[in-house]
């Protein structure tokens, strides 16, 4: 989508347009003379997209995330096919009141890059980082293009959303190749995986007591109800269950047109049944575990589904886990 097709009012929301060479000076001016504002930053958080339709949503997402996680936010919309090459930038402060008297702000720099290549993206990112802070990148575009070693070797945490991928098998291959390459030791976070966190927690609670735990080996089937477009999310959940049980339970996926991303999970076998159910507008899940005659029910919290909440949640649990990476081969084989 060339820049000319992006609505001017969308670009206005990005803040003050600034020549790229004057960004630092413009940021400095942003803070001068306003002592009531405190600038805070714990990370560099960059979103890279090649979809102009995402611009407004991503801008709002950064505003939301920055309220929870003080950061230097970079929003990069690259349009490699657009001609002639042109690069534009905007700056803005993302502020929120604190204790009613003080304003705490993060900085956001937005770029729209028409034409250009991977090197241009890298240069833009690296030239505008807040020094000494970790770099977290949410790569929303195709991993097979522009996602090069010189870029990912500098990334501390890479965020993806595998549920958005049109061809997940190809994207997972590109991801695994990057992870296995020199410099591919970034911490990887998949929003599709984070999306199932509450389900996994609820499932753990479901089989917490000794009786239920002893019946795990009798489980035979996994049935997951998910929203249309969240098939990979459901597959990741199924892969995790099989990996944790060291089993190959049969998997049935049921797709719904409306409702939350993950709506139901049933594990069943002879005389044993565990169910996690999320109603449409509820922020809780109902958990029930049945072993023979004995049934137990619980109400547990469900995570909010929005991307902004998911990214916030993910950044709250910053320490890395090897669990997701170890599951990727399982998922990859399920996609074949």
């Amino acid at each position: 989508m060339p820049l000319s097709t992006i609505n001017d009012s969308d670009l206005d929301r990005l803040g003050l347009e600034t020549p790229i060479g004057r960004i630092d000076r413009a940021l400095k001016q942003l803070w001068e003379g306003d002592e009531a504002k405190t600038r805070a930053s714990l990370i560099n958080l960059a979103i890279y997209t090649e979809d102009g339709c995402q611009l407004v949503a991503d801008n709002e997402l950064l505003d939301h995330v920055a309220a929870q996680h003080a950061c230097r936010a970079l929003l990069i919309l690259a349009l490699p096919e657009a001609q002639p090459p042109r690069a534009r930038a905007w700056i803005q402060a993302l502020c929120r009141p604190y204790q009613g008297k003080q304003i705490v702000c993060s900085e956001q720099i937005s770029f729209v890059l028409e034409g250009g290549d991977a090197a241009q993206v890298q240069n833009i990112v690296f030239a505008h980082l807040d020094s000494d802070l970790p770099l977290v990148v949410w790569w929303q575009a195709d991993l097979t293009k522009n996602f090069e070693e010189r870029l990912y070797s500098r990334i501390d945490t890479l965020i993806i959303d595998s549920a958005r991928w049109e061809d997940p098998a190809r994207q997972f291959d590109a991801l695994l190749a990057a992870m296995n390459a020199e410099g591919g030791d970034f911490d990887l976070r998949d929003l599709a995986w984070t999306r199932s966190h509450f389900m996994r927690t609820a499932l753990a609670a479901c089989f917490q007591d000794a009786t239920a735990c002893h019946n795990l080996s009798k489980l035979q089937t996994i049935r997951i109800t998910h929203l249309k477009g969240q098939r990979t999310t459901a597959l990741l959940l199924a892969a995790w269950i099989n990996q944790r049980l060291k089993a190959s339970l049969s998997v049935e996926l049921i797709e719904k047109d409306t409702g939350p991303a993950l709506q139901g999970l049933v594990l069943e076998g002879e005389g044993v049944r565990g169910e996690v159910r999320r109603d449409c507008d509820s922020c809780f899940v109902r958990v029930s575990a049945t072993c023979g005659e004995h049934t137990r029910e619980d109400l547990l919290p469900a995570d909010v589904d929005s991307d902004a909440e998911l990214v916030s949640e993910l950044l709250s649990r910053f320490h890395g886990s090897t669990l997701y990476s170890s599951m990727l081969p399982f998922v990859r084989s399920m996609l074949k």
Partner: peptide, 10 residues
């Protein structure tokens, strides 16, 4: 007592 394999989440 058996370890709950799903507890790794927590």
């Amino acid at each position: 007592e058996l370890e709950n394999p799903f507890q790794e989440t927590l």
